[in-house]
């Protein structure tokens, strides 16, 4: 077992409001870790720390360290753009660009300066295959991504993320806008992807966390209450709060 990511004494503030309170946590490589907890518990803020998406919030302030492969990603000499090429993110709602399917997947490659058409085609195809979307769209690569269904759009966004070959994929409630059938497809995909990627997923759906994750962390009001193997959390939680939350008594 190898630790891919680590949070060390992490606290987050928005002006005077403390959103996360001294979190210590490490994530295993090639595993799926689920972050659960009621709305406003800080789990999305926490997720966005790993690719520094909170940097755009003017009042945001961080204490502590986030280490990826033992390196603090908030160090001054880190180039954020490079960091994000290594850490993909999939958002709550599918957010394809208003471009063709091909151009959506090729976007990350193009901004890295890859212009060779043959390389682009190979990488786009590979990413679409990984995202289990290739067979559905292989004849329509030039069509607008907005013509796809919601579930297909989300898988396209996953393909877009995978195309630049990150080692970590962050997912912020990736199925919350999808119907059950599309959700099942995305979940199956996540399960497949962990062979090659380290995945951190925020979810509201207890069943989903139980189905797809290896580890589960329960957050409450900015505190990490409990973090353990998923089966352990769901069968034998140490804390009452966790027990109450996963059995649906609050949240």
């Amino acid at each position: 077992m190898k630790n891919k990511l680590e949070a060390k004494n992490v606290s987050v503030f928005y002006d005077d409001f403390q959103a996360l309170n001294n979190i210590n946590m490490s994530f295993e490589e090639n595993a799926v870790t689920a972050l659960i907890g009621p709305s406003g518990c800080g789990k999305s803020t926490y997720l966005r720390l790993f690719n520094r998406m909170n940097d755009y919030i003017e009042s945001f302030r961080l204490e502590g360290e986030i280490l990826i492969d033992k390196k603090n990603i908030y160090n001054k000499n880190i180039i954020v753009e490079d960091l994000r090429k290594n850490i993909g993110m999939v958002f709550q709602k599918p957010n394809p660009f208003p471009k063709s399917i091909f151009e959506n997947v090729a976007y990350g490659l193009r901004i890295q300066g890859i212009k060779n058409k043959a390389i682009l085609r190979i990488k786009v195809r590979k990413a679409l295959q990984q995202a289990a979307l290739w067979d559905e769209v292989k004849n329509d690569l030039d069509k607008s991504a907005l013509t796809l269904s919601g579930g297909q759009q989300q898988r396209l966004c996953i393909a877009r993320t995978l195309a630049v070959e990150p080692s970590i994929v962050l997912m912020d409630e990736p199925t919350s806008a999808l119907d059950p059938i599309a959700t099942a497809k995305v979940e199956k995909l996540i399960y497949e992807l962990k062979k090659e990627y380290t995945i951190i997923i925020v979810t509201h759906n207890m069943q989903q966390a139980k189905r797809i994750s290896d580890y589960t962390a329960f957050f409450y009001m900015g505190d990490l209450i409990e973090y353990n193997k998923t089966e352990h959390i769901f069968t034998n939680p140490t804390h009452d709060r966790t027990q109450n939350y996963i059995t649906g008594r609050f949240g």
């Binding site: 180039i79 753009e81 490079d82 901004i111 890295q112 300066g113």
Partner: peptide, 8 residues
């Protein structure tokens, strides 16, 4: 200089 630095 690598690509990212130029972009930056």
């Amino acid at each position: 200089m690598n690509n990212s630095k130029v972009n930056r």
